[in-house]
C-alpha cells in the first residue's frame, strides 16, 4: 500500500476505534443498505499489554493490560477490513471492520461519516481542554516591602 493510502487508513481506523459505540451504531444505520460481508475472524476479545517508557522517554516497560476487541471481514469484492478497538465491544469492532473494508473499496458516502466522527471526538477533546483551562493558575506577584 502506498504511504499516502496507509496514512488515510491509519486515520480512519483510529477514528473508528475511538468513536463511541452509539456513534458507530448511528453511522452504521446511515449506510445506504446493509452491506454483504463474511466474517474472516469473528469479533474476539483479548488483551493488549500497554507499554510505557521509564521517565516518559526512556526504556520501554510493561505498564498493564487493556481489553481489546478485534474483528476481520471480507466483502464480496474480496476486500478485507480489519478493526482493533479498545474494550469489550464485539458489535463496535465488527461494524468498524466492515466500514474499514468499504472505505478501502472507495465508498464515497463514508468519507463524510469519518469526518463527522472525527469532529465529534475533537469536540469532546476541546470541551475537556476548556474545562481544564478554567483551572489554570494565574500567578500574580505581591509587591514586596523592601522595593
Amino acid at each position: 500500500m502506498p504511504p499516502a493510502e496507509t496514512e488515510f487508513r491509519r486515520r480512519w481506523m483510529g477514528v473508528l476505534a475511538k468513536a463511541a459505540p452509539a456513534e458507530i451504531a448511528a453511522a452504521w444505520h446511515r449506510l445506504a443498505s446493509p452491506p454483504a460481508y463474511a466474517l474472516l475472524r469473528r469479533p474476539e476479545i483479548g488483551l493488549v499489554m500497554v507499554r510505557g517508557r521509564a521517565g516518559g522517554d526512556g526504556g520501554a516497560f510493561n505498564l498493564g493490560e487493556m481489553t481489546v476487541t478485534r474483528c476481520s471481514v471480507r466483502l464480496p469484492s474480496g476486500i478485507v477490513g480489519h478493526a482493533w478497538v479498545a474494550g469489550r465491544a464485539p458489535a463496535h469492532a465488527e461494524r468498524a471492520a466492515v466500514i474499514d473494508a468499504l472505505l478501502q473499496q472507495g465508498d464515497a458516502t463514508l468519507g463524510p461519516e469519518i469526518d463527522r466522527l472525527e469532529a465529534l471526538q475533537a469536540e469532546r477533546r476541546t470541551l475537556a481542554a476548556r474545562k481544564a483551562a478554567a483551572t489554570r493558575v494565574d500567578f500574580f506577584t505581591m509587591v514586596r516591602g523592601e522595593d
Binding site: E44, V48, V50, G52
Partner: peptide
Amino acid sequence: LPRFGASEPLDTAAMAI
C-alpha cells in the same frame, strides 16, 4: 483472555491534559 500483543510505548508528552 488471550494476549493479542503489546502496544507501542505510550507518548505521555502528547497527552490530552
